[in-house]
Design a protein around this nucleic acid. Structure first.
Length: 507
RNA sequence: GGGCGCGUAGCUCAAUGGUAGAGCAGUGGCCUUUUAAGCCAUUGGUUAAGGGUUCGAGCCCCUUCGCGCUCACCA
């Protein structure tokens, strides 16, 4: 560990403490109260005993966030997971030696415990008048300087720790300093809990399926590959949960869901991280229309639970999540947005020409479905700010979805968009094993010139379906993007504790 | 992967091609009710790394690394 000058000074303080017989990293602490509990206890006490101090045997612990010393008096704030409280250290209570020790050896960032009586300082702040204190863990690296001022409940930040690279590489420091960052992740957990409660209360069973898979599937994405040494077996990190969850429907678990990590070996962007969290559920005897209704309920309930409102601020716009959400039929939506009627172009080549005439430059190799997908991305997705279901997708980009009875070129599928982002994807699941086999074969042909995106045939999945799979509606949603929406963050890295960053070159 | 931008003290940022600076943090001093504490003094730099042009480079050029934005990719 290379020490800079500030850190060397801290190490000298550690040595001085040990020389004085004080252990800067004691094995045990005597902390018995959280800061929040202490403040609440004092508030109650005050009601019946105005202008008195409360000298219960409170021992508080926390990290020093600020120090203000004067000649014979020092103030500090300590912070634990529950809140922040001011300490007052006076010569009268502590004596010269103890006060000097605090001034000489204690720094911002150190963890300490302190006991004493609770009172109000002259400015009216609840304060622990310290009678004894102890170092719990000396910090060597100084926390980046950040100062918050609270004015009428508004936090004004005077110095900051804001460089995104350093914040993400040293997320621990980011969290330690920036309370609003901690709040993002408290909300993230609250969102997940809300989704779990919602699914549980609708009779869904939360399950866990393999992350290491011999055959990947359920999405069109490049997988990460790995290897089992003893079994000499190539394995893939899952790109979706879909095929395993639907096997469970075959097994008689009618309503299942999983919240977990997917891994996709693709580009990184403000809305893509190589590993991301997904909620998928499969619902026997339902179809995509029922899933739409459940989706509206689920997302608006999450907003209500976490933010206590269904109107959220995102990128300077108010988004109203209250059901029902707008529904746009894919063909009509594209027709309205750019005048191209995809039904007039059953093959890729004429659709390509129609797009070229509109001045677009689509990929000439793209299938019809991929061209339509490009139209969605260009004309529809960015404009779906308010929650919108786009439904009825072309068959060839949806190999696991069921055809519409009245139009076999179209499948019963929808995607949900909010804030100009795709949030979720759902379909009435294909449960015809012979049709499913055909679709796998078609996908194999469509991508045969591109090994990376080839969709492998999953024989065992077909075997499962051959035993009979109930009709069902399936659903997948990016939790990271939902958290972005509910915390008004425009980068996925802000809502992932340890987002993927390139490895730094060591010299 | 392409384009544009950025990288300077622990943090946030300055610095026409001409002695690398400020605020905060730190250190020393004064101060017994402060809270962005204040006042005085002071330490701290391989200017991301490497190379080049130049009498002289943080600044101009090249290469590399990282980050951001954007495009491409992403059922």
């Amino acid at each position: 560990m290379e020490l800079n000058e500030l850190e060397k000074i801290r190490v000298e303080k550690i040595n001085a403490m040990r020389a004085a017989g004080i252990e800067p990293y004691p094995t045990r602490s005597e902390v018995n109260t959280t800061i929040q509990q202490a403040i609440e206890a004092f508030s109650q006490f005050e009601n019946s005993h105005p202008d008195e101090s409360l000298s219960d045997h409170f021992i508080l612990g926390g990290r020093i966030r600020s120090i203000r010393t004067m000649g014979k008096l020092a103030f500090a704030h300590i912070e634990d997971g529950s809140g922040r409280i001011q300490l007052m250290l006076r010569l009268n209570e502590l004596g010269q030696d103890n006060l000097d020790q605090f001034k000489n050896w204690f720094d911002i960032g150190d963890f300490i415990q302190a006991e004493g009586s609770l009172t109000r300082s002259r400015t009216g702040e609840v304060t622990l008048l310290v009678s004894a204190f102890k170092m719990l863990a000396k910090a060597i690296s100084p926390l980046p300087a950040a100062k918050d001022e609270e004015v009428d409940g508004q936090i004004i930040r005077h110095a900051t720790f804001s460089d995104p690279e350093t914040r993400f590489r040293q997320r621990y420091a980011d969290l330690a300093i920036n309370e609003d960052v901690r709040e993002i992740f408290r909300k993230r957990t609250a969102v997940v809990r809300s989704l779990q409660r919602f699914m549980d209360s609708h009779g869904f069973l939360e399950v866990e399926t393999p992350i290491l898979q011999p055959i990947y599937g359920g999405a069109a994405a490049q997988p990460f590959t790995t290897h089992h040494n003893q079994l000499k077996q190539e394995l893939f990190l899952r790109i979706s949960f879909e095929l395993y969850l639907k096997r469970l429907l075959v097994g008689g678990l009618d309503r299942v869901y999983e919240i977990g990590r997917d891994f996709r070996n693709e580009g990184v962007s403000f809305k893509h991280n190589p590993e991301f969290t997904q909620l998928e559920f499969y619902w026997a005897y339902a179809d995509y229309l029922k899933v739409m209704e459940l989706t509206e309920q689920m997302v608006s309930t999450a907003a209500q639970d976490v933010l206590h409102t269904q109107k959220v601020q995102f990128k300077g716009q108010e988004i109203d999540l209250t059901p029902p959400w707008k529904r746009v039929e894919l063909r009509q939506g594209i027709l309205d947005a750019c005048g191209i009627d995809i039904d007039q172009h059953p093959e890729a080549d004429t659709l390509f020409k129609a797009m070229a005439e509109k001045g677009l430059t689509p990929n000439p190799e793209a299938t019809r479905g991929k061209l339509i997908d490009a139209l969605i991305g260009d004309f529809l997705e960015p404009n779906f700010i308010q929650p919108t279901f786009l439904y009825d997708y072309p068959r060839d980009i949806s190999p696991l979805a069921k055809k519409k009875p009245e139009n076999p070129a179209v499948v019963e599928r929808f995607e949900g968009f909010i804030g100009g982002m795709e949030l979720c994807n759902s379909f009435t699941e294909l449960n015809d094993p012979l049709d499913q086999e055909k679709r796998f074969q078609e996908m194999g042909r469509a991508y045969s010139d591109n090994d990376d995106e080839q969709h492998p045939m999953d024989e065992d999945y077909l075997q499962a379906m051959s035993y009979g799979m109930p009709p069902n509606g399936g659903f997948g949603m990016g939790i990271d993007r939902l958290v972005m929406l509910l915390t008004n963050k425009t980068s996925i890295r802000e809502v992932i504790l340890f987002p993927h960053l390139r490895e730094r070159e060591e010299e």
